[in-house]
C-alpha cells in the first residue's frame, strides 16, 4: 500500500520545500497587500516574514534548517545586487551633475546612521555587543556580515537589525519625509539607500525610478564608505 504520509513528510525537509514556503508566503503577502489597496502597513515583506515565522514555529522545523534550505535564495542576493548597476548606469549623467551633494550627503548620512543608532542604544542601556551590532544597521546584509565578523558583533542580531531597518525605513521613511516637506525624489531615494539599503532600494523602485536609482547609488556608496570607516572607528574607540 502506498504510504502517502511518509512520502509527504520526506518532502518537507528538502530545500525545495523551504523555498516553496518562502515564495508562497511572499505571494500571500502580495495578495494581502493588493487587497489592502497597497497600504504601507500591509507590505508583503511584513506579512510574508510573519507568516513564514508562524509556519516554522508551528511545524517540526528549526530556523537553522530553514536558513540552510533557503540558501539558494540567499545566493541570488549577489546577482540581484550586481543587477543594480543597470538602472544606476542609466542615471549616470544625472548622478555626475550632483557629485558634490552626493559626496557630502554620503559622509553626513553614513556617520548619522551609525552614530545616532549607537548613541540611542547606549542611552537606553545597550551593552557593548548590542552597540557593535547596531553600528552596521545602515549597511547592506552581505557587507554587514563582513564588517560584523571583524568588529565582534553578534551576527544574527546585526543581520536582523539590518533587515528590520531595511524593511521599516523603506516603509516609514517616504511618508515621514513627505510630512517633513521633503519632495525631492533624489533626496528621499538617497536617504533610503544610506539608511535602509536593500529594503529601501526595493521600496524606492516601487515608488519612482529616479528615487530607486539614487537609493541603489547610496546603498553602494555607503557599503564602500562604512566598510572602510567603521572598523577603523571601532578600533579607535575601544583601544582608548
Amino acid at each position: 500500500m502506498a504510504n502517502w504520509y511518509e512520502a509527504l513528510a520526506q518532502q518537507t525537509s528538502s530545500p525545495l520545500f523551504f523555498i516553496f514556503l518562502t515564495l508562497a508566503g511572499y505571494q500571500l503577502g502580495l495578495w494581502v497587500y493588493g487587497k489592502s489597496g497597497r497600504k504601507t502597513l500591509f507590505h508583503p515583506l511584513i506579512w510574508a516574514t510573519g507568516l513564514v515565522a508562524v509556519a516554522l514555529k508551528s511545524g517540526p522545523w528549526s530556523y537553522e534548517e530553514f536558513r540552510e534550505g533557503t540558501a539558494p535564495l540567499y545566493m541570488l542576493l549577489g546577482p540581484a545586487t550586481v543587477a543594480l548597476a543597470v538602472p544606476l548606469e542609466r542615471q549616470f549623467e544625472n548622478i555626475r551633475q550632483l557629485a558634490v551633494p552626493i559626496l557630502v550627503s554620503l559622509v553626513i548620512g553614513g556617520v548619522a546612521v551609525a552614530g545616532m543608532g549607537v548613541a540611542i542604544a547606549a542611552a537606553a542601556g545597550g551593552n557593548l555587543v548590542t552597540l557593535l551590532s547596531t553600528a552596521t544597521k545602515g549597511v547592506t546584509t552581505p557587507v554587514t556580515l563582513g564588517i560584523a565578523e571583524g568588529i565582534g558583533s553578534n551576527i544574527p542580531l546585526a543581520v536582523a537589525m539590518v533587515v528590520i531597518c531595511g524593511i521599516y525605513g523603506g516603509l516609514a521613511g517616504p511618508p515621514m519625509l513627505r510630512f517633513l516637506g521633503i519632495t525631492e525624489p533624489r533626496a528621499t531615494g538617497f536617504a533610503l539607500g544610506i539608511n535602509s539599503h536593500a529594503g529601501g532600494v526595493a521600496r524606492a523602485f516601487e515608488l519612482d525610478i529616479r528615487m530607486g536609482s539614487f537609493a541603489s547609488l547610496a546603498m553602494c556608496l555607503n557599503a564602500v564608505f562604512s566598510s572602510a570607516v567603521l572598523p577603523w572607528i571601532v578600533t579607535l574607540i575601544l583601544d582608548k
Partner: peptide
C-alpha cells in the same frame, strides 16, 4: 529583491 530578504528577516 524583497522575497530574497524574507529568510534573514524571519531570523528576528
Amino acid at each position: 529583491l524583497p522575497a530574497l530578504l524574507i529568510p534573514p528577516g524571519v531570523g528576528l
